[in-house]
Nucleic acid binder design. Structure first.
Lengths: 215, 215
DNA sequence: TTTTTCATCATACAATTGATTTATTTACCA
DNA sequence: TGGTAAATAAATCAATTGTATGATGAAAAA
């Protein structure tokens, strides 16, 4: 199935190059263009866009915010970041915002066409210059004890709910208000949680919950 | 520059298919083959291998362990995981082990050739069936306030040390014993930490510290 | 139907924590 | 050499947290 493409890029020269490149690509149906984030979002709202090629160095609203907005409008659309700077923070933030791929502007056009196609099919792709950042970030996502999820500790639904609130730093009183129960009830649940997790206090419980992703 | 390829795959049929495919690819120099992890590691040790295509469903030692071993022998070599199952745990663990790409066996050969080439140049690629796992994992690596590392909050060395112990769930008394100071001193430091982090209690301090990797 | 589990609440007490204030010693810097 | 920041410590008090124990009603399981 053919795809509609939106190119978001402030430099006319680059935009023209991209457009010309993708005009000749058989899987591309219509190409839309925007030179700033606001226009891009407008166009995205009013048309069925499958793929967005997003420049990060935009005036006013930056590309990351635009990515976030577009992603929240339709998370089916694939967003490919195209940029010349490859700062770790920027890479991770754009992925957090909903990007599906990250390309350096040094990429050769043939490769870019391949990337866009595979990303449009759902793949994720990362440029050599920043691949290590992504690989490292995923590697840091501890999974070793993934088995120790909350079923292991046999928390009840209510307890899990309260543990969640604990990991967000709420006091017993706040939890009670939040769930519209008495502080005493909260304390009873907390006591039960502490027992089940085999810890001494709420701090340890919260740490354990975060560490092993119990909540 | 041409690359040497090692194919690790226990099914002869698949191995043969892969070999035949890559024999015709211009960027490939020599193709090595292994049907199990032990052989693969032997071959990897004795030859200059640039790219490894690794099946995960191997007998005896599994593909993830093999990936780890190979990665530790030479982290310049690119490892492409090829598998039919796409369990989240397996995906993340193989990346942790040092994989650079993750392909489903359903991939078409032309695409695989493209992937292998771009990965050999340093890119990272993830199959549509598992891309969301990787994207989510990276998104979870909190970076929003990457600036807010412990220098931002101007913690003293002692305070940072105590905050670290807090994130490990120690009580004031335990921290005091650990650092051979009085509980009163510990409390003084904790009070200062809470102020600097702008939080209400040690739980919130620990959560913030963990979340923003202050310690 | 009986038993068990869960969620709820209470009271009382002990322990810990956090806030506040004050003060001493050390170290470094201008 | 005087000033500043850091680490140390103590005392006190209020608030929060955790422990222990018991009780009730509803729902689920045996």
């Amino acid at each position: 199935m053919k795809k509609n493409l939106l190119i978001v890029e402030d430099h006319e020269l680059t935009r023209f190059g991209l457009k010309t490149t993708f005009e000749d690509v058989e899987y591309v149906e219509t190409i839309y263009e925007a030179s700033n984030a606001e226009d891009a979002i407008e166009i995205f709202k009013n048309n069925k866009i499958d793929i967005v090629i997003m420049d990060l160095g935009l005036p006013n609203m930056n590309g990351i915010e635009a990515t976030q907005t577009i992603h929240s409008l339709n998370d089916e659309a694939k967003i490919i970041i195209l940029t010349s700077h490859n700062d770790e923070k920027e890479v991770l933030n754009s992925l957090k915002a909903g990007a599906n791929a990250y390309c350096s502007k040094e990429i050769n056009l043939q490769r870019l066409v391949q990337v866009v196609q595979s990303v449009s099919e759902g793949a994720a792709w990362f440029d050599p210059s920043i691949a290590h950042i992504v690989l490292q970030a995923t590697a840091n996502t501890a999974t070793e004890d993934k088995e120790s999820n909350f079923k292991e500790y046999d928390l009840t639904a209510r307890e899990a709910q309260i543990l969640k609130l604990m990991t967000e730093g709420y006091s017993n009183m706040e939890i009670a208000q939040h769930l519209v129960i008495s502080v005493n009830t909260t304390k009873a649940h907390v006591a039960s949680i502490l027992q089940k997790l085999e810890v001494d206090d709420r701090l340890q419980a919260a740490i354990k919950a975060l560490k092993y992703k119990i909540v």
